[in-house]
Amino acid sequence: MKALIAGAGRLGTQIAQVLAAAQNDVTLVDHDEDRIAELESRLAVRLIAGDACEPEFLEHAGALTTDVVVATTGSDEDNLVISLIAKRRFAVPRVAARVNDTENTWLFDHRWGVDVPVPAATPLISLIEEATGATDTVALLRLSKAGVNVIETAITAQSRAAGRALADIVLPAGTVITTVIRDGQPTVPTSEMRLQPGDELLLVSHTATEQEVHAAFQ
C-alpha cells in the first residue's frame, strides 16, 4: 500500500512509523523544513518539505498514485483542503482527516472529500485501522479485536524511564512491551535495552489503562 501523510507532528510521525514497519510505501510531508530535516535521520520513509494544501505539491509528493491520504495537521482548515484536493483532483481511493476541534466534525464528510473523519482523541492503532481500511496493517491491530488494549507511550528527556533498562521498569500486571521504535525502526525489546529520549513504545495489556502504563514510564 502507498500512503501519503500530511503533517509531520507526533501523530503523523507515529502513523508513518507503524505503516513503514508493516512494509508499506510511506511518504510524510510537512511545511516545516526544519521538522523534515530533523526526521531524516530517524524515519525510514520518504520525507518532503512543502505545503500540502497546494495541488502541485501534492502531485509532486505522489498523490496521483497513492492509495490513502491521511491529513494529520493541527489545523482543521488545512486538513479539509488537503482532503478535498486529494479526493477531487487526484481521486485518491481513501482519505482520512484528523478533526482537531469537535465543533468542526460536521464538516468532515464526502463533501470535503473525507472518507474517514478521525477525532483527535482516537488511539493511534484505531486511527491507522480506520484510515487504511485494513485490520491487518500490523499484527497489533488484530489484538484490539480480541479485547487486548494496545497502548503507546513516548520517552522524552524528562521521562523518569529515560536511561533505564527495561528490566528495571515495573509494568502493570498483564502488560507486555511488544515493540520499541528507535530512530524510525521497530526493535524487539530485550531486558537489557536502555530507553532513550525519542524512543516510542507499543505495549499490550489485558487490564491496564493508558494512564497506568504512562505512569510507569513518565
Rank of each mutant, 00 (worst) to 15 (best):
V99C: 00
V68E: 08
P119F: 04
G133I: 08
G12S: 08
P189W: 14
A167S: 15
A154N: 06
E38Q: 14
V180T: 12
G62V: 08
P119R: 07
T137D: 03
E129V: 15
D109L: 09
H60M: 15
I125T: 09
V118Y: 02
V180C: 05
A91V: 12
V180P: 07
G74C: 07
L195C: 11
T175S: 10
A22E: 13
E59G: 04
I169D: 09
V45C: 12
D78P: 03
T27D: 09
A22K: 10
L80E: 02
A215P: 03
E40T: 12
R46W: 09
G12T: 07
A121I: 09
N100Q: 15
N79Y: 00
A91P: 00
G174T: 07
A134R: 15
D76P: 05
V45P: 07
A37G: 15
K145F: 07
H206P: 01
E59H: 14
V29P: 07
R42M: 09
N100W: 03
G74Q: 15
I169E: 04
T27Q: 08
L84K: 13
A22L: 05
V70H: 00
I5C: 10
V45I: 13
A63Y: 12
E40F: 06
D25R: 12
R164C: 06
V204Q: 10
D199C: 05
R94A: 01
S83K: 02
V148G: 02
Q218I: 03
D136F: 10
